[in-house]
Design a protein around this nucleic acid. Structure first.
Lengths: 198, 198
DNA sequence: AGGATTTTATGATTTAAATCATGTTATCAA
DNA sequence: TTGATAACATGATTTAAATCATAAAATCCT
């Protein structure tokens, strides 16, 4: 999202995280700007019963966790590495300095926040008021549009486990499995040795 | 959000909408920036069965509907006046011109989008994975923190109908009524001639 | 002022998804 | 290579919220 060379001018450092390492925790004060060089990061919450909800999954060149930085609030969710990942990070102060000196970056940030707000709006309506099959299909379609899924002969390979789809849509994994089966029967997607294609 | 005098410099005009008038519709291309001078605007969706979901309710001095403007997408929801309202609007082109010439506005927009993204994140986790009472209480608390609810002797007056709370949380109105009753019994809020206080 | 509509309210019934149980297959780590 | 763990799978049962029905109170409208 922000050029690595520019970040480095402002003292950015590169940090590596192993699979399932925590980058920051819900309720903590934000101190840095984070951008992914390589890997995969999820933001999540756990409810009172320990059920996970995934706010979003982020991939290379994407940033995450900035909103609380701008509005001086604590993190609304945790950030956890899904696979081994390399992040470039700079301190809050340096980040704001960078912004002030590079006016054109602001528009990028606005666009990025707008994109994420758009996703949340669409998914909020879906999650709250549609049947499971519809929710799963909409998440899949949205993920294809936004994320870097590979197009193969059978269609786009949906690079999400059923558990992840469950946690992204607020459903239970058994419900997702049954919904995906049913969607396959209807011809809305394909299952080839357990992998989902659309 | 943006000073009215500044908007007027860029050719803003004032438009009035009556209760339940539509400002724009889901799926349509955005053409203007909208800011509320007075009144109350909701953004909503309807699912396949006609059930309403309210994305958010906006009050005076707030803007709404900008994200699609920035990312060149169609509106993800409708905007409808909840009461008679007065809006100040400028065209997309003039709006971007204003932004270019007034760099300090960008940070305001970033903060505003961040705030809304924060709300969506919190509510997404709530809606997807908590019991109705928790969802209702969290919406009420969030609304107190964000909106201009009046503090009275009995507490903050929650200026939302039970139907609106249902549409904001994805619940049914009967469920909200029962949840509010139950929350009152537990002492989490007060009901004084049908009005809810917290 | 009076009729229509919206909001709040409550009880009975249905239903879809969660939960529980259990097993197979695939993937990961030592 | 194997033992452990994660992912996928399926059937049976439970349960909480939706749905249905009905009505009183408040508010809106002309």
């Amino acid at each position: 999202m922000i050029a690595i060379s520019l970040l480095e001018k402002y003292g950015a450092i590169i940090k590596t995280f192993k699979n399932s390492d925590t980058i920051f925790e819900e309720g903590k004060q934000p101190t840095h700007y984070y951008q992914i060089i390589s890997g995969e990061i999820k933001m999540n919450n756990y409810n009172d019963e320990g059920k996970e909800f995934i706010q979003g999954i982020f991939y290379e060149n994407q940033c995450f966790g900035e909103p609380p930085l701008f509005i001086d609030q604590v993190y609304p969710a945790n950030a956890v590495a899904v696979i081994d990942s390399e992040l470039i990070i700079i301190t809050k102060n340096k980040f704001f300095e960078l912004l002030e000196n590079n006016a054109e970056i602001s528009l990028n940030i606005i666009k990025n926040l707008s994109q994420r707000l758009y996703y949340k709006s669409v998914m909020a309506a879906e999650i709250s008021s549609q049947d499971p099959e519809h929710r799963v299909l909409r998440l899949i379609d949205y993920s294809i549009a936004q994320l870097n899924f590979k197009k193969e002969a059978a269609g786009f390979l949906i690079n999400l486990t059923r558990q992840q789809i469950a946690d992204l849509t607020g459903l239970r994994v058994e419900t997702v499995i049954r919904a995906i089966k049913s969607l396959e029967k209807k011809g809305d997607l394909k299952i080839i040795n357990r992998k989902v294609y659309r």
